[in-house]
Computed example of a mutant assay.
Amino acid sequence: MRVLMVEPGGPILVEGPVEIELADGSVVVCERPLVALCTCRRSRRHPFCDTSHRRRSAGPAGQAPLSEHG
């Protein structure tokens, strides 16, 4: 497994496929060529990232919400 990128507040990107052993001893497998692993523990798909680390904040009136890493 090779780590490709670690962004503060975001996921760890690694080359797949990967096998991850969780604290309870169970093993999770992902066959994708690039895997995003959650570091914030907000993901509903933990240990995989579902972009829950992004905060959504409303822009000025009439504009769509902005997405930020944080």
Rank of each mutant, 00 (worst) to 15 (best):
H69L: 15
P11T: 06
I12T: 10
C30F: 05
R2S: 08
G9A: 11
A61T: 11
G9R: 13
L66P: 02
M1Q: 10
D24L: 06
S67V: 14
G70A: 11
C49I: 01
H53G: 00
V18Q: 06
R45W: 02
T51R: 00
M1E: 11
T39S: 07
H69P: 01
F48R: 03
R54A: 06
D50N: 06
I20E: 02
A64P: 14
I12Y: 00
A61E: 14
A61K: 13
E68W: 15
V14R: 00
A58G: 12
P11Q: 07
T51C: 01
E15M: 03
E21G: 00
V35E: 04
P47Q: 05
V14W: 00
V27D: 06
P11E: 09
I20C: 05
A64V: 12
L66K: 11
C40M: 05
T39L: 09
A23S: 12
P47F: 05
L37E: 04
P65C: 14
A36C: 07
C40H: 04
R56V: 15
L13G: 02
S52H: 12
A61R: 14
A36F: 00
M1A: 11
G9L: 12
L4T: 10
A58E: 15
G62L: 11
V3L: 13
V6E: 13
L4D: 08
